[in-house]
Design a protein around this nucleic acid. Structure first.
Lengths: 196, 196
DNA sequence: TTTTATTTTAACAATTTTGTCTAACAAAAA
DNA sequence: TTTTTGTTAGACAAAATTGTTAAAATAAAA
Protein backbone atom coordinates (compact mmCIF):
# COMPACT_ATOMS: atom_id res chain seq x y z
CA UNK A 1 0.00 0.00 0.00
CA UNK A 2 1.35 3.38 -0.89
CA UNK A 3 1.98 6.01 1.77
CA UNK A 4 -0.74 8.62 2.12
CA UNK A 5 2.04 11.10 1.68
CA UNK A 6 0.19 14.29 2.48
CA UNK A 7 3.53 16.05 2.45
CA UNK A 8 3.74 16.34 6.23
CA UNK A 9 7.23 14.91 6.43
CA UNK A 10 8.61 17.36 3.91
CA UNK A 11 6.64 20.18 5.53
CA UNK A 12 8.28 19.45 8.89
CA UNK A 13 11.70 19.40 7.29
CA UNK A 14 11.02 22.68 5.49
CA UNK A 15 9.84 24.31 8.69
CA UNK A 16 12.85 23.11 10.68
CA UNK A 17 15.11 24.31 7.90
CA UNK A 18 13.48 27.72 8.04
CA UNK A 19 13.79 28.05 11.81
CA UNK A 20 17.38 26.86 11.96
CA UNK A 21 18.93 28.10 8.72
CA UNK A 22 16.86 31.17 7.93
CA UNK A 23 15.90 32.55 11.32
CA UNK A 24 18.96 31.38 13.22
CA UNK A 25 16.99 29.79 16.06
CA UNK A 26 19.90 27.53 16.85
CA UNK A 27 18.27 25.76 19.74
CA UNK A 28 14.71 25.41 18.56
CA UNK A 29 13.01 22.66 20.57
CA UNK A 30 10.92 19.90 19.01
CA UNK A 31 7.86 21.68 20.42
CA UNK A 32 8.82 24.95 18.72
CA UNK A 33 9.41 23.19 15.43
CA UNK A 34 6.13 21.30 15.68
CA UNK A 35 4.23 24.48 16.57
CA UNK A 36 5.80 26.38 13.68
CA UNK A 37 4.81 23.56 11.33
CA UNK A 38 1.31 23.37 12.81
CA UNK A 39 1.57 19.68 13.67
CA UNK A 40 1.54 17.67 16.86
CA UNK A 41 4.97 17.08 18.31
CA UNK A 42 4.39 13.34 18.09
CA UNK A 43 4.31 13.54 14.30
CA UNK A 44 7.86 14.72 14.44
CA UNK A 45 8.86 11.54 16.25
CA UNK A 46 6.73 9.46 13.98
CA UNK A 47 8.58 10.66 10.91
CA UNK A 48 12.09 11.13 12.30
CA UNK A 49 12.27 9.03 15.53
CA UNK A 50 14.24 11.72 17.36
CA UNK A 51 15.23 15.36 17.24
CA UNK A 52 18.77 14.40 16.30
CA UNK A 53 17.60 12.42 13.32
CA UNK A 54 15.41 15.30 12.14
CA UNK A 55 18.39 17.62 12.32
CA UNK A 56 20.56 15.05 10.58
CA UNK A 57 17.95 14.69 7.82
CA UNK A 58 17.74 18.39 7.04
CA UNK A 59 21.50 18.63 7.13
CA UNK A 60 21.89 15.80 4.76
CA UNK A 61 19.47 17.48 2.37
CA UNK A 62 21.18 20.81 2.78
CA UNK A 63 24.61 19.37 2.10
CA UNK A 64 23.36 17.57 -0.93
CA UNK A 65 21.84 20.78 -2.30
CA UNK A 66 25.02 22.71 -1.58
CA UNK A 67 27.12 20.12 -3.31
CA UNK A 68 24.83 20.22 -6.35
CA UNK A 69 24.92 23.99 -6.45
CA UNK A 70 28.71 24.09 -6.26
CA UNK A 71 28.99 21.41 -8.89
CA UNK A 72 26.59 23.04 -11.33
CA UNK A 73 28.04 26.52 -11.01
CA UNK A 74 31.69 25.61 -11.03
CA UNK A 75 31.67 23.22 -13.94
CA UNK A 76 29.37 25.30 -16.18
CA UNK A 77 30.73 25.92 -19.65
CA UNK A 78 31.36 29.64 -19.30
CA UNK A 79 34.34 31.95 -19.21
CA UNK A 80 35.73 32.44 -15.72
CA UNK A 81 34.38 35.92 -15.14
CA UNK A 82 30.84 35.07 -16.24
CA UNK A 83 31.01 31.91 -14.17
CA UNK A 84 31.97 33.90 -11.12
CA UNK A 85 29.15 36.37 -11.71
CA UNK A 86 26.77 33.44 -11.83
CA UNK A 87 28.17 31.97 -8.62
CA UNK A 88 27.60 35.29 -6.91
CA UNK A 89 24.02 35.50 -8.13
CA UNK A 90 23.18 31.91 -7.24
CA UNK A 91 24.82 31.89 -3.82
CA UNK A 92 23.66 35.36 -2.90
CA UNK A 93 20.08 34.26 -3.52
CA UNK A 94 20.56 31.16 -1.41
CA UNK A 95 22.33 32.99 1.39
CA UNK A 96 19.63 35.63 1.57
CA UNK A 97 17.14 32.81 2.09
CA UNK A 98 19.30 30.76 4.52
CA UNK A 99 22.04 32.93 6.00
CA UNK A 100 22.69 30.69 9.01
CA UNK A 101 23.07 27.40 7.21
CA UNK A 102 26.85 27.34 7.14
CA UNK A 103 27.22 28.77 10.61
CA UNK A 104 24.92 26.09 11.92
CA UNK A 105 26.88 23.41 10.13
CA UNK A 106 30.15 24.54 11.62
CA UNK A 107 28.89 24.92 15.16
CA UNK A 108 27.11 21.56 15.08
CA UNK A 109 29.92 19.73 13.40
CA UNK A 110 31.08 18.04 16.59
CA UNK A 111 27.59 16.82 17.39
CA UNK A 112 26.73 15.70 13.89
CA UNK A 113 29.78 13.75 13.02
CA UNK A 114 32.01 14.88 10.26
CA UNK A 115 30.95 12.33 7.67
CA UNK A 116 28.16 14.74 6.70
CA UNK A 117 30.76 17.07 5.32
CA UNK A 118 32.16 14.43 3.07
CA UNK A 119 29.02 14.98 0.98
CA UNK A 120 30.86 17.92 -0.48
CA UNK A 121 33.02 16.68 -3.28
CA UNK A 122 35.96 18.89 -3.87
CA UNK A 123 36.70 18.12 -7.52
CA UNK A 124 34.50 20.87 -9.03
CA UNK A 125 35.93 23.34 -6.55
CA UNK A 126 39.44 22.28 -7.44
CA UNK A 127 38.79 22.78 -11.13
CA UNK A 128 37.38 26.24 -10.43
CA UNK A 129 40.49 27.07 -8.39
CA UNK A 130 42.60 25.91 -11.31
CA UNK A 131 40.76 28.32 -13.61
CA UNK A 132 41.31 31.09 -11.07
CA UNK A 133 45.03 30.35 -11.13
CA UNK A 134 45.01 30.62 -14.94
CA UNK A 135 43.31 34.01 -14.69
CA UNK A 136 46.01 35.16 -12.30
CA UNK A 137 48.60 34.22 -14.90
CA UNK A 138 46.65 36.19 -17.49
CA UNK A 139 46.56 39.12 -15.07
CA UNK A 140 42.79 39.63 -14.84
CA UNK A 141 42.87 38.99 -11.10
CA UNK A 142 45.53 39.69 -8.51
CA UNK A 143 48.00 36.88 -7.91
CA UNK A 144 47.43 34.96 -4.71
CA UNK A 145 46.87 31.44 -3.48
CA UNK A 146 43.62 30.50 -5.25
CA UNK A 147 42.25 29.30 -1.91
CA UNK A 148 42.28 32.95 -0.86
CA UNK A 149 40.32 33.90 -3.95
CA UNK A 150 37.56 31.45 -3.04
CA UNK A 151 37.50 32.43 0.62
CA UNK A 152 37.34 36.09 -0.39
CA UNK A 153 34.39 35.40 -2.65
CA UNK A 154 32.34 33.54 -0.06
CA UNK A 155 33.35 35.85 2.77
CA UNK A 156 32.15 38.90 0.90
CA UNK A 157 28.90 37.14 0.04
CA UNK A 158 27.99 35.56 3.35
CA UNK A 159 29.27 37.57 6.23
CA UNK A 160 27.21 40.73 5.80
CA UNK A 161 24.05 38.63 5.71
CA UNK A 162 24.89 36.70 8.85
CA UNK A 163 25.74 39.90 10.68
CA UNK A 164 22.85 41.96 9.34
CA UNK A 165 21.36 42.82 12.76
CA UNK A 166 24.77 44.03 13.92
CA UNK A 167 25.38 46.19 10.89
CA UNK A 168 21.91 47.68 10.94
CA UNK A 169 22.70 48.89 14.44
CA UNK A 170 26.22 50.00 13.58
CA UNK A 171 25.22 51.98 10.51
CA UNK A 172 21.94 53.11 12.04
CA UNK A 173 19.90 51.87 9.07
CA UNK A 174 16.55 50.09 8.85
CA UNK A 175 16.06 46.57 7.59
CA UNK A 176 14.81 47.96 4.28
CA UNK A 177 17.79 50.23 3.85
CA UNK A 178 20.13 47.37 4.62
CA UNK A 179 18.43 45.21 2.05
CA UNK A 180 19.19 47.89 -0.52
CA UNK A 181 22.84 47.70 0.49
CA UNK A 182 22.84 43.95 0.03
CA UNK A 183 21.39 44.33 -3.45
CA UNK A 184 24.48 46.31 -4.38
CA UNK A 185 26.89 43.68 -3.18
CA UNK A 186 27.13 41.60 -6.32
CA UNK A 187 28.52 44.59 -8.18
CA UNK A 188 30.81 45.59 -5.29
CA UNK A 189 32.23 42.08 -5.00
CA UNK A 190 32.96 41.79 -8.73
CA UNK A 191 34.68 45.15 -8.56
CA UNK A 192 36.93 43.94 -5.78
CA UNK A 193 37.79 40.52 -7.15
CA UNK A 194 38.59 41.50 -10.74
CA UNK A 195 41.04 44.10 -11.96
CA UNK A 196 39.59 46.87 -14.06
CA UNK B 1 35.27 42.54 55.42
CA UNK B 2 36.63 42.40 51.91
CA UNK B 3 35.86 39.57 49.52
CA UNK B 4 38.39 36.80 49.34
CA UNK B 5 38.39 37.26 45.64
CA UNK B 6 40.42 34.25 44.59
CA UNK B 7 39.51 35.07 41.03
CA UNK B 8 36.95 32.29 40.68
CA UNK B 9 34.26 34.59 39.31
CA UNK B 10 36.54 35.88 36.58
CA UNK B 11 37.82 32.36 35.94
CA UNK B 12 34.27 31.12 35.33
CA UNK B 13 33.60 34.01 32.95
CA UNK B 14 36.84 33.35 31.09
CA UNK B 15 36.02 29.68 30.74
CA UNK B 16 32.49 30.33 29.50
CA UNK B 17 33.87 32.87 27.07
CA UNK B 18 36.32 30.30 25.76
CA UNK B 19 33.68 27.58 25.31
CA UNK B 20 31.14 29.85 23.64
CA UNK B 21 33.27 32.33 21.69
CA UNK B 22 36.40 30.35 20.95
CA UNK B 23 35.20 26.77 20.62
CA UNK B 24 31.73 27.54 19.30
CA UNK B 25 29.94 25.31 21.80
CA UNK B 26 26.78 27.32 21.38
CA UNK B 27 24.68 25.35 23.81
CA UNK B 28 27.15 24.58 26.52
CA UNK B 29 25.27 23.61 29.68
CA UNK B 30 26.06 24.99 33.12
CA UNK B 31 27.53 21.59 33.95
CA UNK B 32 29.85 21.70 30.96
CA UNK B 33 30.96 25.21 31.80
CA UNK B 34 31.53 24.28 35.44
CA UNK B 35 33.48 21.16 34.48
CA UNK B 36 35.65 23.08 32.04
CA UNK B 37 36.38 25.64 34.74
CA UNK B 38 37.07 22.92 37.30
CA UNK B 39 34.51 24.22 39.79
CA UNK B 40 31.29 22.90 41.23
CA UNK B 41 28.24 23.86 39.25
CA UNK B 42 26.76 25.57 42.29
CA UNK B 43 29.56 28.14 42.28
CA UNK B 44 28.24 29.25 38.95
CA UNK B 45 24.88 30.00 40.52
CA UNK B 46 26.50 31.56 43.55
CA UNK B 47 28.29 34.12 41.40
CA UNK B 48 25.78 34.65 38.61
CA UNK B 49 22.40 33.45 40.00
CA UNK B 50 21.42 31.82 36.71
CA UNK B 51 22.80 30.63 33.42
CA UNK B 52 21.18 33.54 31.63
CA UNK B 53 22.87 36.05 33.85
CA UNK B 54 26.24 34.41 33.32
CA UNK B 55 25.76 34.65 29.57
CA UNK B 56 24.60 38.23 29.91
CA UNK B 57 27.67 39.04 31.98
CA UNK B 58 30.19 37.68 29.48
CA UNK B 59 28.33 39.39 26.67
CA UNK B 60 28.39 42.67 28.43
CA UNK B 61 32.13 42.33 28.93
CA UNK B 62 32.65 41.26 25.34
CA UNK B 63 30.63 44.16 23.94
CA UNK B 64 32.51 46.57 26.12
CA UNK B 65 35.84 45.21 24.90
CA UNK B 66 34.70 45.33 21.30
CA UNK B 67 33.53 48.90 21.65
CA UNK B 68 36.88 49.87 23.18
CA UNK B 69 38.80 48.13 20.43
CA UNK B 70 36.78 49.83 17.70
CA UNK B 71 37.16 53.17 19.41
CA UNK B 72 40.89 52.89 19.93
CA UNK B 73 41.67 51.68 16.42
CA UNK B 74 39.36 53.96 14.53
CA UNK B 75 40.24 57.21 16.24
CA UNK B 76 44.00 56.61 16.36
CA UNK B 77 46.07 59.47 14.96
CA UNK B 78 47.36 57.70 11.87
CA UNK B 79 46.93 57.98 8.12
CA UNK B 80 44.02 55.96 6.81
CA UNK B 81 46.02 53.13 5.28
CA UNK B 82 48.18 52.59 8.36
CA UNK B 83 45.07 52.76 10.50
CA UNK B 84 43.42 50.07 8.41
CA UNK B 85 46.50 47.87 8.64
CA UNK B 86 46.34 48.22 12.39
CA UNK B 87 42.64 47.36 12.45
CA UNK B 88 43.39 44.21 10.49
CA UNK B 89 46.18 43.20 12.86
CA UNK B 90 44.18 43.92 16.01
CA UNK B 91 40.95 42.30 14.86
CA UNK B 92 42.62 39.34 13.21
CA UNK B 93 44.34 38.57 16.50
CA UNK B 94 41.06 38.83 18.36
CA UNK B 95 39.11 36.81 15.83
CA UNK B 96 41.69 34.03 15.85
CA UNK B 97 41.16 33.83 19.60
CA UNK B 98 37.34 34.19 19.55
CA UNK B 99 35.99 33.45 16.08
CA UNK B 100 32.43 32.72 17.21
CA UNK B 101 31.86 35.80 19.31
CA UNK B 102 29.94 37.77 16.72
CA UNK B 103 28.02 34.78 15.41
CA UNK B 104 26.96 33.99 18.94
CA UNK B 105 25.86 37.56 19.50
CA UNK B 106 23.72 37.57 16.40
CA UNK B 107 22.06 34.23 17.04
CA UNK B 108 21.36 35.06 20.69
CA UNK B 109 20.18 38.57 20.00
CA UNK B 110 16.52 37.73 20.42
CA UNK B 111 17.13 36.02 23.74
CA UNK B 112 19.48 38.63 25.11
CA UNK B 113 17.58 41.75 24.36
CA UNK B 114 18.93 44.27 21.97
CA UNK B 115 20.03 46.82 24.55
CA UNK B 116 23.32 44.93 24.77
CA UNK B 117 24.15 46.06 21.28
CA UNK B 118 23.68 49.67 22.19
CA UNK B 119 27.00 49.33 24.00
CA UNK B 120 28.57 49.83 20.60
CA UNK B 121 28.82 53.50 19.97
CA UNK B 122 28.85 54.30 16.32
CA UNK B 123 30.64 57.64 16.36
CA UNK B 124 34.19 56.27 15.94
CA UNK B 125 32.94 53.99 13.17
CA UNK B 126 31.25 56.90 11.45
CA UNK B 127 34.42 58.96 11.56
CA UNK B 128 36.37 56.05 10.07
CA UNK B 129 33.78 55.75 7.30
CA UNK B 130 34.18 59.47 6.64
CA UNK B 131 37.92 58.98 6.21
CA UNK B 132 37.25 56.08 3.85
CA UNK B 133 35.02 58.37 1.77
CA UNK B 134 37.85 60.92 1.61
CA UNK B 135 40.23 58.23 0.37
CA UNK B 136 37.76 57.31 -2.35
CA UNK B 137 37.79 60.92 -3.47
CA UNK B 138 41.60 60.83 -3.51
CA UNK B 139 41.41 57.60 -5.52
CA UNK B 140 43.39 55.31 -3.23
CA UNK B 141 40.43 53.00 -2.84
CA UNK B 142 37.61 52.12 -5.21
CA UNK B 143 34.54 54.33 -4.95
CA UNK B 144 31.61 52.72 -3.18
CA UNK B 145 29.27 53.29 -0.29
CA UNK B 146 31.70 53.39 2.67
CA UNK B 147 29.45 50.91 4.48
CA UNK B 148 30.52 48.36 1.87
CA UNK B 149 34.16 49.12 2.57
CA UNK B 150 33.69 48.31 6.24
CA UNK B 151 31.64 45.19 5.57
CA UNK B 152 34.27 44.03 3.10
CA UNK B 153 37.00 44.51 5.66
CA UNK B 154 35.30 42.56 8.42
CA UNK B 155 33.95 39.89 6.08
CA UNK B 156 37.40 39.13 4.75
CA UNK B 157 38.77 38.98 8.27
CA UNK B 158 36.12 36.94 10.05
CA UNK B 159 34.45 34.54 7.71
CA UNK B 160 37.38 32.26 6.90
CA UNK B 161 38.01 31.80 10.62
CA UNK B 162 34.41 30.94 11.40
CA UNK B 163 34.30 28.46 8.54
CA UNK B 164 37.74 26.98 9.10
CA UNK B 165 36.53 23.37 9.53
CA UNK B 166 34.59 23.63 6.29
CA UNK B 167 37.48 25.04 4.30
CA UNK B 168 39.94 22.53 5.67
CA UNK B 169 37.70 19.83 4.25
CA UNK B 170 37.07 21.67 0.99
CA UNK B 171 40.72 22.36 0.28
CA UNK B 172 41.88 19.09 1.80
CA UNK B 173 44.38 20.78 4.10
CA UNK B 174 45.34 20.17 7.72
CA UNK B 175 44.73 22.56 10.59
CA UNK B 176 48.36 23.60 10.47
CA UNK B 177 48.30 24.27 6.75
CA UNK B 178 45.13 26.31 7.14
CA UNK B 179 46.72 28.37 9.88
CA UNK B 180 49.48 29.24 7.44
CA UNK B 181 46.82 30.44 4.99
CA UNK B 182 45.28 32.62 7.68
CA UNK B 183 48.64 34.17 8.43
CA UNK B 184 48.72 35.41 4.84
CA UNK B 185 45.33 37.05 5.02
CA UNK B 186 46.35 40.45 6.34
CA UNK B 187 48.47 40.98 3.22
CA UNK B 188 45.78 39.58 0.91
CA UNK B 189 43.10 41.81 2.41
CA UNK B 190 45.18 44.96 2.11
CA UNK B 191 45.87 44.06 -1.50
CA UNK B 192 42.16 43.79 -2.21
CA UNK B 193 40.99 46.87 -0.38
CA UNK B 194 43.59 49.34 -1.65
CA UNK B 195 44.52 50.14 -5.19
CA UNK B 196 48.12 49.57 -6.11
C1' DT C 1 41.73 30.86 69.50
C1' DT C 2 37.41 32.21 68.49
C1' DT C 3 34.64 34.71 65.44
C1' DT C 4 32.92 36.11 61.17
C1' DA C 5 32.24 36.66 56.45
C1' DT C 6 33.02 34.37 52.28
C1' DT C 7 33.38 30.46 49.32
C1' DT C 8 32.60 25.71 48.07
C1' DT C 9 30.13 21.45 48.27
C1' DA C 10 26.48 17.89 48.41
C1' DA C 11 21.73 16.78 48.31
C1' DC C 12 17.51 17.85 46.63
C1' DA C 13 13.60 20.12 43.99
C1' DA C 14 11.64 22.15 39.89
C1' DT C 15 11.47 22.75 35.19
C1' DT C 16 12.19 21.84 30.54
C1' DT C 17 12.80 18.87 26.91
C1' DT C 18 12.74 14.56 24.78
C1' DG C 19 10.94 10.14 23.89
C1' DT C 20 7.34 6.21 24.29
C1' DC C 21 2.98 3.98 24.38
C1' DT C 22 -1.64 3.33 23.33
C1' DA C 23 -5.74 4.54 21.36
C1' DA C 24 -8.37 7.14 18.02
C1' DC C 25 -8.90 8.34 13.33
C1' DA C 26 -8.75 8.27 8.10
C1' DA C 27 -8.45 6.21 3.74
C1' DA C 28 -7.65 2.63 0.60
C1' DA C 29 -7.92 -2.56 -0.23
C1' DA C 30 -10.11 -6.83 0.34
C1' DT D 1 -18.49 -3.46 5.27
C1' DT D 2 -14.59 -5.08 7.37
C1' DT D 3 -9.76 -5.20 7.37
C1' DT D 4 -5.50 -3.35 6.79
C1' DT D 5 -2.23 0.28 6.61
C1' DG D 6 -0.76 4.65 7.60
C1' DT D 7 -1.28 8.98 10.32
C1' DT D 8 -2.37 11.96 14.27
C1' DA D 9 -3.36 12.97 19.12
C1' DG D 10 -3.24 12.62 24.19
C1' DA D 11 -1.32 10.93 28.31
C1' DC D 12 2.55 9.42 30.40
C1' DA D 13 7.61 8.34 31.43
C1' DA D 14 12.43 9.35 31.23
C1' DA D 15 16.16 12.16 30.79
C1' DA D 16 18.57 16.33 30.88
C1' DT D 17 19.09 20.80 32.65
C1' DT D 18 18.53 24.38 35.78
C1' DG D 19 17.82 26.32 40.24
C1' DT D 20 17.58 26.15 45.63
C1' DT D 21 18.83 25.13 50.30
C1' DA D 22 21.47 24.11 54.04
C1' DA D 23 25.67 22.65 55.76
C1' DA D 24 30.78 22.23 55.58
C1' DA D 25 35.26 24.24 54.60
C1' DT D 26 38.37 28.12 54.37
C1' DA D 27 40.81 32.06 55.57
C1' DA D 28 41.23 36.54 57.47
C1' DA D 29 40.03 39.55 61.56
C1' DA D 30 39.15 40.25 66.29
Amino acid sequence: MPLKNTGTEQHIKDTAKRLLFAEGKLHATTQEIADAAGVNRTSLHYYFRSRDQLIAAIFHDAMHDLSQRLNTCMTAGQPFKAKTENIIAVFLRHMIAFPYQETFLVTEINTLGQQLMSDIHSEPVMSYLKEAADEMEKGTITKMNPAHFLMNLFSLLSYPLIMAPLYEQLFGVSGEEFKALIDERGRVIMGLLFKK
